[in-house]
Every structure is written in C-alpha cells, then in structure tokens.
Nucleic acid binder design. Structure first.
Lengths: 131, 131, 131, 131
DNA sequence: GTGGTCTAGACCACA
DNA sequence: GTGGTCTAGACCACA
C-alpha cells in the first residue's frame, strides 16, 4: 500500500501522511479529481486517531493538494497546485546540499553520487503512473 | 560565517549545528585535528542556550565527527569517520526521493532538476577548501 | 447565471444561496411578485441536496425576502422588506472593518481602497436592472 | 482589551482569535517583534482550552503573521507579510459586494453608504497606533 | 518553561 | 454520513 505509516518514526504521523499523499500525487497514484478516503475510514484503516488524519488533511488542503467539498468528501485538487516557488527552490537546494554532505561521509565519490542520482531519476520516471 | 543558525527554522537548533559542522568538515573548512570552540564560547557567540550546544557536540561525538580530549578540549576527529553505510545509503535515497517530489510540485522537469543537480555538484567541488 | 454556487467554498452552500438571492433582489434581477423555482427544480438544476435548498428558502422567508403561498409556490416578497436596522448597521460596520484589515495585509493604501470602493459603487449602480 | 472573544458567536473561537490578532497588527497595537503571550498564558487568561489557542497560533504562523522561535516564545513577524494578492482582492471585492447588498436592505442610499465608508476610513486612520 | 503531538471523546453544522 | 470544533489530558522534544 502506498500509504504506509511508521508509528515509531520521529517524524510526526500527520507529517508522514502529508508526505505520502504528496508523493502519491506526484507519482500519479492519485490523480486530480480522485476521491480520498474519509477521515474516519482512513483512521480505522491505519488504526490512528481521526484527529490526526484530520490534521493531515487540513494541511494538505492548505497546501492546495486536496479539496474538501462540503459533505461530499475530500478530493485530489484539480487546479494546478500553487506552490511557493522561492521556498521550494530553497528547499531543493538544501536537499542537494544534504546529499553532498551525506555522500562525503559515505566515501561516495561525486561520480558515484551522480550515477546514483541518475538511476533514481530514471526509476521515478519509469514507475510514474504504475499502480 | 559558516556556522549560521536560523532560530525561526522548524529544524531544531542542535540539528542545525550538527549539519553545519558536518558540512564544514566535508568542505574542508574544518580539518582533522582542528580545535573546536568550547561549548561556552559557542553559546555566547551564537547567543544560544549552552545545553543546546552541548547536545550538538554529543551527537557529533557519537557520529565520530569530533573527539573530546580530557580537559584539553574538543577536536575534529583524526581517524577516518566511521559511518554506518547502510543507514547512509538509505538516507541518501530518501533525500533523492524528497527532491523528486519537491521538484514535481515546483513544476521542474527532470531535465531541469538534473542540470540543477549537476551545477550544485560542480559548485561544491570548486568551493572545496575555500574559506 | 446569477445563481452560481461554489461547492469548494468554506461558506455553507445554503448561505451562498441566501446571499445570491438577496443580491439578485437588490439588483433587480428578481422583482417583487416573481415566482421562485421550486425546491426540487433548483435542487436538480444546481445538483444540490434538496434539504440545502429548503434551508436557504426558510432563511429567506424568515428575513422576509420571499413568501410561500400555500400550494401556489414561492414568490419574491411584495411588501417592503422588514430588516432589523440595528443588526444591519452592525453588520455593515463589521464588513467595513474587515475590508480595512484585508486591505492592510494586501498593502493597499486607504486612497486605493477608497477608489476601489467608489468604482464598485458605480458599477453596482450601472448594472442595476441589467440581466 | 483588544482581544475579546465571544464564546457564543457562531464563528469558531480560533477564527475569532486569528481575526483579532490580524486586526491588532493592522492597527499597530501589535508591532513587529512584539512578544505574544504564551499559549498557556492566553488560555488561562481567556479561560479557553490551550489547544484552541495553539490552533489559532498555528494558523497565524502559516499566514506569516507571527513566528515561533524555539522555546523562546512567539513573536509578531518582522518580515513583510506575504499574502496571496489574488485571493485577497477577491475577498475584498466580495466584502464590498456584501456591503452594497446589506445597504440596499437597510434602505441606505449609495450617498449615505459612501459617507459611512469615508467616516470609518477616517476613524481607522486616526486610531492607528493608539493604545 | 515553551510549543508540538497525539489520543479519546463529545457535540455540531451541513448536506 | 461528512468534516469541523472544542475540551481534557498525557507525553515529549527543545532550550
């Protein structure tokens, strides 16, 4: 299942949920217009308190990833997601930075890192839209 | 200064400190054998609670980045850094993953992401050892 | 169509309906004595739960905007609308208040706000009675 | 006190709190850098559950009105508030719209409404920065 | 002491 | 049935 949560992880459950959903949308598992499970459904499915699910859904809505239609349920947003470009680029740069540091301590050369990156990119591309 | 901390950030200050030091070592700003500032020095310099500095130093010592020599002070570790390879590779993969998701929401194509990555890599290489 | 509803909005659908009808009356789209569509008609037209339409009609009747004539249907009220003046003025003041706060965060100067307001006023005046 | 909450109101308490704070900032009661009361302080002061206060603070932080500095407390944000201009203008137009409708039912002429608006604007300007 | 997370549970507006 | 609000209370990371 694309929505697995690790309750032992130090990252809060609701954050994990947000990440998983964003990822699923990015990969095409979830498509615009798709109906999300209800808060209660997901809560009982994952054995997590409904409030926690609700918090994740609220965040996702604030980020424009999903939309709530009064009493009809929650859906993957149709409109193009408006993301703060500046903030996003900053985050991207930081992630690359962290990679480089991590690679250094792993004794991975830049060449190796590069090919690792290219492979991941390829993988991602291939898996896009798969179930 | 290579050690700038953002108190507004959601990442804990001690984690930021750890990252900054690891980065400085990776880039060659800090070299094996270099003396680290004492906890108190750094605390007053950065205007941060000494407990926070101490916690960061503990972590760095656990990761083998720095070493405390009884009553002489703290130094950048000389021995080759022992990093858990498995854990490191996992982290690396996760970072790449996060990048891909972030790039998706920024509307950055894989080609763009690739060139962004290559540029960062080049940058990193060039700046190594610079002040 | 003067009666468009946004199911994504955070304002309840029945409130939106009430607002739209009041607006239509104020603009002269709907005139005293005009027949309103039945609850079922409107429900199927707007693809909205009939209970929601019924609730909106109830409110409109309470406010004296529309009248139900036993088994003949619902009509735009003929008599002068009885509105609680005190309540109305309070609401008006609040709306102006909200405008000022909103304008502040948009970086709109009072002069700009003023001209924006004057233009809206003019617009409203001109469109009155148009379809 | 600038922060009075009406527990009987139909607008949620946390929304009222958000509005009050935004208003206080807009009027200059709260200035950039000012320290906000802690969640617990405000909770006991207003006799409201701390979670409700926390929710309001989180919203304010997401909107960029306030900032949390790790364990130092919460402060009125210094940086210029980044508000979604488009969304804001839309809201502004809606508010003006509502005013016009309301004025119609109150039997207030456009001239009267205009002077009412101008007076409010003047009032606001004068009170700015007063305690 | 500070805010953040999570649970359990109640109640309510809306459709 | 759907999500939103609020309370009470516990626990925890951080500084």
């Amino acid at each position: 299942m694309w929505l697995d949560i690790d309750p032992r992880s130090s990252t809060p459950i609701y954050v994990q949920l947000v990440q998983r959903v964003k990822e699923a949308v990015a990969r095409g598992f979830l498509r615009p217009g798709d109906r999300m499970p209800t808060v209660r459904e997901l809560a009982s499915l994952l054995m997590i308190n409904p409030n926690t699910i609700a918090k994740a859904y609220q965040r996702l809505e604030q980020e424009g990833i999903i939309e709530t239609m009064r009493s009809r349920g929650t859906f993957v947003a149709v409109g193009s997601v408006q993301i703060n470009k500046e903030q996003g680029r900053k985050k991207l740069t930081e992630l690359i930075h962290d990679m480089l540091v991590e690679a250094y301590y792993l004794g991975i050369s830049n060449e190796e890192l590069q090919s690792l990156f290219m492979n991941s990119l390829q993988d991602w591309e291939n898996r896009k839209g798969e179930q």
